[in-house]
Structures are given as C-alpha cells and as structure tokens.
C-alpha cells in the first residue's frame, strides 16, 4: 500500500527537495505552500499518512496548522513532522506540545529524514536502513 505525504513549505525549492526525498522512499506526495492550503487538501478528502511542516509561512504558519489538525479527531492518525529552520529549544517544545510527532531541523540530509521515518514506523519496508 502506498504511503502518502503532504509537504507543506512556502519555498517551492524546499517542497521539491522534500517531495523528491520522500518519493525516493516510495511515498506518493502532494504539496502545499502554507498551512491553509494544506488544510484545504485535507478537507477535500486527501488525508495523508504524514505531513512535513515548515514553521514560518505566510497565511497560516506551521504551528497553527498543527493546532488545526489536532483539533479535528478525524485527522488524529496523521503523523506530523516539523521540518524547519526554527531550532530554538523553546520552539521545538512548543511544536511537540501542540501535537507534532517529530522535529527535523533544516538543513537536513535524506538520511536524517529516513531515520525519523523509521522511528515513526513510516518507512516503506522495501527501503533499507
């Protein structure tokens, strides 16, 4: 079964990089440029297994998106992984307290993403560690 990911970042370049990395692991991906656009994708019924979420974005930032997803019980199974350059300890704590499962600090490597996915049990079996 295909694993689905929604890549949320206001940078097109970063969306391409993260999507490319996940597709290399066998994911089917979609992209959103900010939190509200991502919520629209979820509302239309495309509910992913994983959301990768930038913090600083226009319209709706990553933390607001996490709060919105966690407020809807129907989206509880969605795994939320922050992928952001916000690396202050306080910000990491805030994101995890709001309901994010994992936190990856930019810059990251494909290996770092793979390791996090393995920890979350979201690495397709055919991808070896």
């Amino acid at each position: 079964m295909t694993v689905r990911a929604l890549v949320i970042d206001d940078s097109r370049a970063m969306r391409r990089i993260v999507s490319g990395t996940l597709e290399g692991f066998g994911y089917e991906t979609r992209q959103a440029g900010h939190g509200q656009e991502a919520l629209d994708v979820l509302h239309e019924g495309w509910v992913p297994d994983l959301c990768t979420i930038d913090w600083n974005m226009p319209v709706m930032d990553g933390l607001q998106f996490v709060n919105a997803v966690r407020a809807n019980p129907a989206w509880r199974p969605v795994t939320l992984m922050m992928v952001t350059s916000e690396s202050e300890h306080g910000q990491i704590v805030r994101a995890l307290a709001a309901g994010a499962h994992e936190y990856v600090i930019k810059p990251f490597t494909a290996d770092a993403i793979r390791d996090k996915l393995a920890l979350l049990g979201l690495l397709p079996q055919e991808v070896s560690l």
């Binding site: 940078s11 097109r12 370049a13 600083n56 350059s85 916000e86 690396s87 600090i105 930019k106 810059p107």
Partner: peptide, 15 residues
C-alpha cells in the same frame, strides 16, 4: 525562492 530559502536556513540557525 532558492536564495530566500538559503537565507532562511542560515538565518534560522544563526537565530
């Protein structure tokens, strides 16, 4: 977009 993201990543880590 690319140059902005580089500044974002460097800036975030400087912060």
């Amino acid at each position: 977009d690319a140059l902005g993201e580089l500044a974002n990543v460097v800036g975030g880590n400087v912060k």
